[in-house]
Simulated assay, not measured.
Amino acid sequence: MLDGWKRRSLADLLEFRNGMNFTQASQGARVKIIGVGDFKDKEVLNDFSETPSITLNGKLNPDDLLKNDDLLFVRSNGNKALIGRCVLVSGITEPISFSGFTIRGRVKSDEINHSFASKLVRSPLFKEHLHRMGGGSSINNLSQDTLSEFCFSLPPLPEQRKIAEILRTWDEAIEKLEALRAAKLRRITSVRQRLFEAAFASHNRLQRARDIFEPVSERARPDLPLLAVMQDIGIVRRDELDRRVAMPDGDTSSYKVVRPGDFVISLRSFEGGLEYSTITGLVSPAYTVLRPTTEVVGDYYRHFFKSRSFIGRLDKLIFGIRDGKQIAFRDFGDMPIPAPPVSEQKAQTGALGCLEADLALENVRIEALTRQKRGLMQKLLTGEWRVNVEAD
């Protein structure tokens, strides 16, 4: 054991409480309830302006309220990647409680600093613990026992504070880059909107979607790799994904072939729902594969199908798309969409491509800093690298 470090478990240092499943009433006291939807991909949750409030049926136990410096964990969620995610609660000035899909952790020992604790439960060490508790796969449901059984070496308080301070500098640098990335993404969205609204305004350049694209059902190619259709990253090979995706059992000869330049209508169409392919492979027969019937610039329509100009018009055409309704080709095919000359498609795609390349650089910087921080956490939280607290 390192000098001054002690072997501890979270059960020694924190007390846990599951959130409540509240019953609403027509009148009575109102209170804000933090749910999984309020978790941000940041360490500290201190903005409750958009946190929903409900009128409670009955009185609220004071112990069901959050306090500053509490830790809040995602206990259960349809997205397994979120289970175990933790935020440090800060800046509370009004009654706020937490939902039944979360677990509150509250420091009960003066041996641990709350900021250090929040770093610890967001570290690779903690994620490895969850991985083991899940039997080598994503954990299905976080329990108080799983949290309590996490064991680690705890440094003295001065080292804890210094470690938390060092890691906070990385967090601040990453947050600045994320803000810059968000600004550049808004710029792309704005440019897309201007370009495609102008295209819609040129009525003589609009064509029905069915005159530009047609559904295809090329099959009987089980030798091709399986593809995943993802709204956040597009169309990729399933075997290259770093997330769990259900794989088919048995024969795939009925699966549809997707080729470079094709579009696939996503089964859950929240954001436009048409994904562009740059690779060859197979998708489930449930998908609709679209192929251009005339010369087009694929990237032009890739941008168009992600634009608010297209999504807004599609929303009006297909009621309920935000609830995950699949787009039928008969509905999509009736839509008038821009069809400018190919030379114009290339010019506009070039402009949008430059903005995308600039955005991609921010992603690279963020990923690099995140990797550095992850490696630094591993070194500092295990004591492999010690910090100098005497100089402070």
Rank of each mutant, 00 (worst) to 15 (best):
P156N: 05
P156W: 08
P156C: 06
P156V: 08
L157G: 01
L157S: 01
P158Q: 03
P158W: 05
P158G: 08
P158D: 03
E159T: 02
Q160T: 01
Q160A: 07
Q160G: 10
R161K: 14
R161D: 07
K162A: 05
K162T: 04
K162Y: 01
A164L: 10
E165I: 02
E165C: 02
I166K: 06
I166M: 12
R168F: 14
R168Q: 14
R168M: 14
T169L: 12
T169V: 12
W170F: 14
W170H: 11
D171E: 13
D171K: 09
D171Y: 09
D171W: 12
E172P: 03
E172V: 09
E172F: 05
A173D: 05
A173F: 01
I174T: 13
E175F: 03
K176P: 00
K176V: 09
K176D: 06
L177S: 09
L177Q: 08
L177G: 02
L177I: 01
E178W: 02
A179H: 07
A179P: 01
A179I: 11
A182T: 10
A183Q: 10
K184D: 09
K184F: 07
L185A: 14
R186N: 15
R186S: 15
R186C: 13
R187T: 13
I188C: 06
I188N: 03
I188Y: 01
T189F: 10
T189E: 14
T189C: 12
S190T: 11
S190C: 08
S190Q: 05
S190D: 06
S190L: 11
V191T: 06
R192K: 15
R192S: 13
R192W: 06
R192Q: 15
